[in-house]
Design a protein around this nucleic acid. Structure first.
Lengths: 188, 188
DNA sequence: GAAAGTGCGTCAGCTACTGACATGAAGTAG
DNA sequence: CTACTTCATGTCAGTAGCTGACGCACTTTC
């Protein structure tokens, strides 16, 4: 077996995904994953903090892309339009990741422990977006509200796109943000 | 020690809170909690599914209150105004729970595992609100979006209220929903 | 070519969590 | 009053997630 650390990491991720799909998360032990990847259990935990984390890699990449995109939006743009523009920048990455995302989806849906971790990852993105908005001069409470609401809208757009791919992700994004504007306009 | 099941449950919750405050979540074992409550570790797991769950009780109560309040809003009210009205109905409960909520807050803030569980509880509330909106005839994608966004706004109002209690929770609620409307109006 | 760094194996151990069975208190039927 | 049932708990044995310590082999660097 190759000793290259990065390759081991990839093999562990692939092995975990396969096993979770074959027998489910609960009936897969970390030892099983390590064995299929050709390493020991101890090595599994050198690459991933826990049994869930092996499933969620590349979230840091999305975070960096998003915060960079927020910073690149012309000054003076309001918070939610800023976020919408940033989300549009992520479309190629999301499209590229679709195959692996779709393989993971059923496992996450069937596993509460993985749902929890997915929520935590999303919350980390919201925190990063909040910081990015504050760096643009958005006041604290508004920044947190917009980051959270923007992320929800983004998530729903991606979800709808995954379920119905007749329209592209850009279209779904604009549609979701329009839905948000219309819904919020009904508030008095 | 009394054998009444409910009382054991309360003692376990109180013991867990005390110990988490004294030495932190990670340095507290389920055996410690059980011992302080005067029972065995096995009994702990008969009352709570896991070490985190002992910290989050009464979320079901809030869920029932919220879904009932949504159902009670006059027909024809738009989704977000419906939710805002329902959230106002929960103010007495939130105020009553403030003392215990404030004791828990620092522990949750310091413990990633508890943050994750808190997010999961919030997500469960969003799911319940989505169902409640759909029961009122709101279309699926709009219901999910509004439930999620409404919950965010609610959470932020409660958070602001906890940090600055010069205004009451009703005021913070209206303020947060106004912020939402204004932010969303900037979307073209 | 020696020294330092690194990725991995091995082993020992802790703790969260579960299943199976026993016990003993409390209520209920006869 | 006794017998039967029910139910919360105790006891015990076991699995699995996760960690620290140590040693080894391979790679890098000077």
């Amino acid at each position: 077996m190759p000793r290259n650390g990065d390759e081991v990491r990839l093999r562990l991720q692939e092995a975990a995904l396969e096993l979770y799909l074959e027998r489910g998360y609960d009936k897969t032990t970390t030892g099983d994953i390590a064995a299929r990847a050709g390493v020991t259990e101890r090595t599994f935990f050198r690459h991933f903090a826990d049994k869930r984390e092996v499933f969620f890699d590349g979230e840091a990449q999305l975070r960096d892309l998003l915060t960079g995109a927020v910073a690149a939006v012309p000054a003076g743009t309001k918070p939610l339009p800023t976020l919408r523009a940033a989300f549009h920048q992520t479309v190629p990455l999301i499209e590229r990741n679709l195959p692996i995302t779709q393989r993971r989806a059923p496992v996450i849906a069937a596993t509460p422990a993985l749902k929890e971790r997915a929520l935590a990852k999303s919350a980390a993105l919201v925190a990063a977006l909040t910081d990015a908005l504050r760096a643009r001069g958005v006041a604290e409470p508004i920044a947190a509200l917009c980051a959270q609401v923007g992320m929800d809208t983004y998530s729903i757009a991606v979800r709808r796109w995954g379920a119905d791919r007749t329209d592209d992700l850009h279209t779904h994004l604009d549609r979701a943000f329009t839905d948000l504007r219309l819904a919020a306009n009904a508030l008095k």
